[in-house]
Design a protein around this nucleic acid. Structure first.
Lengths: 201, 201, 201, 201
DNA sequence: CATGAATGAGCGTTCATTCAT
DNA sequence: GATGAATGAACGCTCATTCAT
């Protein structure tokens, strides 16, 4: 057999693309390496050249998306403060999940309930953003923008609220994104007694 | 002289107990039927006499807990109406998850990300309670107790909020249950503009 | 498929028989589990039910033969002493190798040059018998039957001499066993200055 | 300005050196081409430029050492005859094995038990020297230096004796070389009734 | 000549499921 | 009803070999 090499430098990307597709559709355990192989027009050997094993290939996808999420949020809140920053963080998380359906499904669904090496992954990402939000919330409380609340509980509740609505949207496509944006964000902010002024943003 | 005759229901229960224990600790895929066999002091054959296969054994546990949840909530809201009923429903869901740590873990974690035959299960349970809550919320809105909101978004956001806080508690034991109860419920109610009166249960 | 079970208790033996046959013909690495499966009229699962892995299956054969060798020699020398005992030990080793061609090939050829878990096996067996012989030789020296020699060197040289002649016989069938018996034993005994009396034994 | 042009023989040697090292340490099957690559600071392609495949690379080492052995023995016995020639041949074989520990291990251990293409190799080398010795022995018998013996059995027994003592020394370093030299050679010669005169080299 | 990414046939091992006892 | 030895399809992973650069 001749080695068809249409774009030598991109083998790794082609693998990641195919893996993202198959993993997000079938989940970790129902994904066969052979499916990724054929979908990526590479070979088993290539996968194992670029990734140590199936698990690490999966985790590479999760990490890749977690990093993207982090970057987006960090950029978004760069010049904001107080509740505006909280709002931007939440908004960016929702928007990013919405924009990247398949990575979102991998992080929020397929990475759940796996064994020890994975389990912490989703929780780690969640905790990271929850802590970030808790921190900003506390600042808003200290600044007197909102009344005191249990920021730890609030931040994790918010992450869960976002996750669940997004997961449902990932699966069913409902409710439509505008409705989510319009309904979810005010709901979260209202839960800490922060009413957005009409016409803002 | 009477022979020792094993109580059939007893065997089935021993299997379910062992399955609950192992599944909740290791998850669906990392659980070997052999582990359930040894933990239940039964046999492979017994498991396959009482359950058609591994999948159905797992689902039996999920169903069992979903039914319990349903019963508890139904009882709790029997004589209430309006936002009081909403409050009771949420409260009961949280309380029941808290009381049954391992079944909660199975429903909220281990049943996630499995193949088609499973994932409908978790989503079905979630949807069921979300719809129930959406329905009661709508009544409260119609009754003028709270301002109009997107009940579909709200109910799924609430379920997610509860799930995530509970999942974290299942894993880490934090925050302590009283704090969850004190922090989460008011948060959810406040998110639809419903302030509990001081002193109210 | 129905489970054909002609002799339920003998599955393990059938596996060992087939393994002995295939391993002795092809060597450890060139033996495929599938070949043992078909030759044993069992299944892959059965092999892994009775043995933890390929390596241990192979070692079971080696150990089995090493034990047999030990037993034979021990019985043979039970009531002898001095050089007569030495002679009997050597004779029994040669005779047993000759009688069990395939196990001999496994121990003397196929178990050589494998990785760490095996390597010591052949050496261990060799050392064991060499030490035994060295011990008896020393007694014969102390008793004045033969002149002093380096018993450590002698015993290992003897084992090697026997091994090599047997290995050649295993491969080529030459020289014929009587010639080996007639030529090898006197050679070894003469090497320590012990001449057998004509007509003895 | 002259370009740096790698000496082709140098590359080939580096590969052989690395191969000798790794093969002698890990054996044929446990050696990965990648290990030889890194140890030789060359590349996969280089190995396949200089050798047709792994097997031939291994055999090149065996042949190289067999040739050396042959040369040494031939030189040593050039001007001798009768039992003196036999003694010199044996002595040179032992001395050469002792001097080249790693090649000896490859020939005597790692080349054993491999598939058809190899095992003829080790056996061929053994047979070659055995026949050479058998031939010289026969001459000594014909010349009346020693009593008649089965030269075929004797020569293979001798090779085995030497091999086994050397193999043990290769693994354990025991017994020390002088003891081997002092003990093994007289033992072999005595086995055919040839007593060295005191004071003789 | 040298390089190393790419290939893919091949194999050991797992484990849910079956069924004779 | 209970038991556990037996089954075999299925899969992750290895590694010698190739060849475009």
């Amino acid at each position: 057999m001749t080695h068809f090499r249409p774009d030598p430098e991109n083998t790794r990307s082609r693998i990641l693309d195919a893996a993202l597709d198959v993993f997000s559709r079938k989940g970790y355990h129902d994904t066969r390496l052979d499916e990724i192989v054929s979908e990526s027009t590479t070979s088993k050997g290539s996968i194992y050249f670029h990734f140590p094993n199936k698990e690490q290939l999966f985790l590479a996808l999760v990490d890749q998306f977690a990093d993207l999420l982090e970057r987006r949020v960090t950029e978004a809140i760069a010049r904001a403060s107080g509740m505006a920053r909280v709002r931007l963080a939440l908004e960016t998380v929702i928007a990013t999940f919405s924009k990247y359906r398949r990575p979102a499904k991998i992080l929020l669904v397929q990475a759940v309930g796996l064994g020890a090496p994975f389990e912490n992954k989703r929780n780690a990402v969640t905790d990271h953003f929850a802590q970030m939000i808790a921190c900003y919330l506390q600042e808003a409380i200290d600044a007197g923008e909102i009344a005191p609340v249990d920021v730890e509980v609030v931040s994790h509740a918010w992450m869960g609220a976002i996750y669940n609505v997004i997961v449902r949207w990932v699966y069913t496509g409902e409710p439509e994104l505008p409705r989510i944006m319009a309904g979810l964000l005010p709901l979260l902010l209202r839960s800490v007694g922060y009413e957005e002024k009409i016409g803002e943003q």
